[in-house]
């Protein structure tokens, strides 16, 4: 459903992506792992139209969306949960959730989705009047995921959802990712936590300084010697 072909991105003089190609198939969880600065976040930002692409193309549901603006991409159901949570700190939890549905007009469906995300994250419902900036880190991450779900993603891209969270909450986030996927949402996951990510992934890509070096099914990557050394710390 998402197909990236030979994507290049420059930041000034820095050639951050040097020809990335990857694809996400329907119903799957795909993960993208790699060291700090490899260009994972840049890949997702380029897909969303947040950073300009030097060359290459992005196909989504068979259509070329390389030149689309972010709003139209979001409207099409391609949604990014950005790195570092990025909730709106002055807005309440409920307002943050409402903003997730900004491009939608179907009031009744929005109300239903709101109920659904509150079921997924009961802690958010208890805190819906609280300013998002006063939530704990884990709660903010839940809010960031909940907010993304409010956009009715067909493909949800998550940039390091487990960053800085306690192991128990990480487990919780990962089980929710699986749950979301079962509910019919395709997932493209970026993780430092390579083991946890590959365990729930159908397919994975490994990225190094702007290029994809290895790819394979989650199971294969988990037993790949190179990956075990470099990313699983074994």
């Amino acid at each position: 459903m998402l197909e990236i072909k030979d994507l290049h991105v420059h930041y000034g003089g820095i050639h951050a992506l040097r020809g990335i190609s990857l694809s996400v198939e329907y119903g799957k969880i795909i993960s993208l792992i790699g060291a700090n600065g490899a260009g994972k976040s840049t890949t997702l930002k380029a897909i969303m139209g947040l950073v300009p692409k030097t060359s290459g193309s992005v196909f989504y549901d068979g259509k070329d969306i390389s030149a689309n603006n972010t709003k139209d991409i979001v409207k099409g159901g391609l949604i990014l949960t950005p790195e570092g949570r990025r909730v709106f700190p002055d807005l309440t939890v409920d307002e943050n959730i409402a903003l997730g549905a900004y491009t939608r007009k179907d009031k009744a469906e929005i109300a239903r989705d709101r109920k659904w995300v509150f079921e997924l994250f009961p802690r958010l419902e208890e805190r819906k009047w609280q300013a998002a900036g006063t939530l704990s880190g884990g709660e903010q991450q839940m809010l960031a995921v909940a907010r993304s779900l409010m956009g009715r993603p067909k493909l949800l891209m998550m940039d390091e959802p487990s960053l800085g969270l306690a192991p128990l909450i990480v487990k919780n986030i990962f089980s929710i990712i699986k749950e979301i996927n079962k509910a019919g949402v395709n997932v493209l996951l970026i993780e430092q936590n390579a083991k946890a990510a590959l365990e729930i992934s159908d397919y994975g890509y490994v990225m190094e300084t702007g290029v994809i070096t290895i790819s394979g099914t989650g199971k294969d990557l988990l037993v790949n010697d190179q990956i075990r050394k470099a990313y699983l710390g074994e």
């Binding site: 969303m48 947040l50 603006n69 972010t70 709003k71 979001v74 409207k75 949604i79 990014l80 950005p82 990025r86 709106f88 700190p89 002055d90 807005l91 307002e95 409402a98 903003l99 997730g100 900004y102 491009t103 907010r147 956009g151």
Partner: peptide
């Protein structure tokens, strides 16, 4: 809604864009 978008944009352009705000 537009007021909420204004508050969001005043804090964080990029994330506001990710919400589909123009």
């Amino acid at each position: 809604k537009i007021g909420m978008a204004m508050r969001a944009v005043s804090k964080d352009f990029q994330t506001a864009k990710l919400m589909g705000i123009e």
